[in-house]
Amino acid sequence: MKHTKKLSAVLLAAAFTAGTANAAEKLSIYHWFEYIPQELLNKFTDETGIEVTMDTFDSNEAMLASLKAGAMGSYDVAVPSDYMVKILLDSGMLQSFESSELSNFDNIDGPWKDPSFDPGRKHSVPYQWGTTSFAVNRDVYSGDINTTDMLFNPPAEVQGKINVLDSQGELILMAQLHLGLEQCSTNRDDVKKLDALLQESKQHWASFNSDGAKDVLVSGDAAVGQIFNGFSTKAREEGANVEYAFPKEGYVAWMDNVVLLKDAPNRASAIAFMDFMLEPENAAAVSNYAQYKAGVTGAEAFFEDTIKNSPELNAPDGSPDGTFIQACNQEAQALYDAVWTRLKK
């Protein structure tokens, strides 16, 4: 599918630019899978005459590994999540721009103008934001689901029918929220408690699956599944009787961002794309496609009703705010890597 998308983007871009006399400018995007509608890429090519090619990745870490293994210099923009923006920035893999270069810079929504992962928004612009918690099949379990006990101390009905994400960051943060621990803590008792909890809970889990997180809920293989809120919406729309939880202990919040990569071969095209994505109508087009919210002022006006009324996007009153994953230092990360390896031993 990755190649089909890339190919169709190239073909369409070629079709649009065939008529123009000038040699076409290019833009190379490194993006998550299934995260941008093809029509929007066509619209960008239509408006700017810039040819778009796109490759996709399935996790922030996979993207980092690929960039480190030599893909730097071949992409103009990438779409990492919050903590990965910080990691890229600290590794010197991003380049800065001036807010004046983007005519739509002021469209960035208030809370997202000065995030901790990119102070002052000098290297990134918002793409979409959402939450990661879990969805529960209401045919199987009818009790209170707004607690992380559903994953770490599950009721009998769902034991052995739980899918968790095969992703260290999201699973460990949920466990830390369950125990009320600080992220990136190197306190020995904290790490031991976390390790013990994961070892104990694993017996109740059926699988570790990220790309299939939605499918296992739709097929009924899993009664509880850790999942991004937009995927939970899609599972519901595909007929699964699932409800998305906002646990009282907390849940994961994230924001994906378009970043300007260092050594971008087409810097001007990259700036044009970032500006394009800050248009409320375009940001809303992604929201309508992916079922997340955009960090762009005015995008709400273009949201479909499914988003305005979505139970996955609108936390009930009294729910805590989501927690962002922190990028740990080397010492702490080594501990959590060890915990993760022990979990899957």
């Binding site: 870490e61 590994a65 992703s167 694993k202 990360q333 959590y336 890597d337 390896t341 899957k344």
Partner: peptide, 23 residues
């Protein structure tokens, strides 16, 4: 896909070192 990735195999252990969080 079929085993649920609950335990590492040699292949997934190696993959994790390059593509996963461990790095």
């Amino acid at each position: 896909l079929l085993g649920g990735a609950k335990t590492f195999m040699i292949g997934s252990l190696i993959e994790e070192q390059f593509k996963g969080n461990a790095g």
